[in-house]
Amino acid sequence: MAETKKLAIIASQGTLDWAYPPFILASTAAAMDMEAVIFFTFYGLPLLKKEIDAKVAPHTNPAMPMKMPFGSKEFQSYNWPIPNFISGNVPGFDSMATSLMKETFKKKGVATIEQLRGMCQEFGVRFIACQMTMEVFGFEKEEFIEGVEYGGAATFLEYAADANISLFI
């Protein structure tokens, strides 16, 4: 068979919505017999914590559809017109939106972030934590899951130099 293809991803965002693409793509790449590395930097770093507490922030995503995970099909399809000054200012709005998104995903048979992260590890996807971001934001290795590697830009680039697919997410 042809030589093994390589996927290199930089995960720089830590909200629930942005947490999905790196784990989906890396786990699927591994399932397709590719090598995959995710480099977690800046706000992506908390995705390596033992307990993931990622939330969505609707006011930062004006195009995000606001939908309900219950009720009739018509009700669920309705896109609630929530003004930005409400989604950005009402206390607890992000938590509510996060609960709704998680419930919708569960009902649609979408994996949880924890599940996808676990499958990545099972399939041999390498996770690299940005050492500099750890220093800056004050993260300790003890907060993270087992099996994480630590490094910087050069560590990622050494791998990415031979990658067939490189993504910044």
């Binding site: 989906i24 699927t28 591994a30 399932a31 397709m32 048979g109 979408v110 994996a111 499958m119």
Partner: peptide
């Protein structure tokens, strides 16, 4: 059945 992308692929691989 009932599962969404990428779970069918991941489970198939396993």
């Amino acid at each position: 059945e009932g599962l969404n992308c990428p779970l069918p692929i991941l489970k198939t691989k396993k």
